Simulated scan of single mutants.
Amino acid sequence: MINFRYHVVSLTAVFLALAIGLVVGTAALNGPVADSLRENVNLLRKDNQQMRQSVNNLQKELDSEEDFAAEIAQVVLPGKLTGKRVLVLSLPSGRQHTDGVVKMLDLAGADVTARVELQEKFINPDNNSNLMELAVTAARPTAPASGLPGNGHGVETSSALLASVLLDRAAGAAPVSEPDRRSVLGAYSSAGYLTTDDRVTKSAEAVVLVSGQPYVDKDSVKKDESVVKVAEQFDRTGSIVVGGNGSAGGNVVAVVRGDPVLAQAISTVDNANTVQGQLVTTLALVQQLTEKKAGHYGVGDSAAAILPKLPQ
């Protein structure tokens, strides 16, 4: 049987071994190992400083490019859209850079007929049935429901109705009356599907759809599909440029560029979240209205060029 003295001796041996290990380890660390660790720390510190400096330099370059774009816009934009009536339609994902887009349109002399902001509720697939019903109840004599898509997609049907009161009608078609336009917009605004300013007094001949990154939640596929439906319906009625942020994933810029039919009709800009992209968005609209031509611009891999060729 193991007695108490054996336990004492065993524990003493264990603690003695630990003490010897600490002494030996400390001595080793004070030698080449410590020097090596110290050198590695210094190298990492230098790398970190260099990376921080690189980030600062890149930010300065970006700021300079943005300043340059703002300055060059003062030269190339004035008069380019004089007399052109333009609707600005923004999605929740593009709200932060809508003001910049409007600023460039104003600089080009565009008559911004309205700023309409679609709310998240409009894109939410849970509201599909409600949007279908609202499109029917909100319709008016000069904006009837008879010509709206009837395939059961609420965003598509409601977008078609909104496009019919916000954009010009086809040649020969009767225009929407002002009371009917106000009534349709009021119905969607009261239900929380959109907000708009007070200057919607006439229709537009073109629309800039301001969007952003693709959705990433559990309903992302359906929401991204709904955004594309909005673009498609407004494209059926007038010229359209999508000013977006990025060209990957399921966002509307990526989908349009990947669709051979939509790509021929809808212009896209993948960096409208920057001053440069907001300038290019306006130039793309000039191209749409003067040349009747769609183009795809920005810095993404799927862009055809940074900006359209300016007319001589």
Score class of each variant (00 low, 15 high):
G21M: 02
L22S: 01
V23L: 07
V23W: 06
G25N: 08
A27F: 06
A28I: 11
G31F: 11
P32C: 05
V33K: 03
V33F: 03
A34V: 00
S36K: 06
S36Q: 10
R38D: 01
E39W: 06
V41L: 10
L43W: 07
L43H: 04
L43V: 02
L43N: 01
K46A: 11
D47E: 08
N48F: 11
N48Q: 12
M51D: 15
M51Q: 13
M51H: 01
Q53S: 11
Q53P: 07
Q53G: 06
Q53F: 06
S54C: 01
V55Y: 12
N56A: 13
N56W: 00
N56I: 13
N57S: 10
N57F: 03
L58T: 11
L58F: 11
L58W: 12
L58V: 11
Q59F: 14
Q59N: 14
E61F: 07
D63R: 09
D63I: 14
D63Y: 13
S64G: 10
F68R: 01
F68S: 01
A69C: 07
E71M: 00
I72V: 12
A73V: 00
Q74W: 09
V76R: 04
L77E: 07
K80Y: 02
L81P: 01
T82Q: 05
T82A: 00
K84A: 06
K84Y: 05
K84S: 06
R85T: 04
R85C: 08
V86N: 09
V86F: 04
L87Y: 06
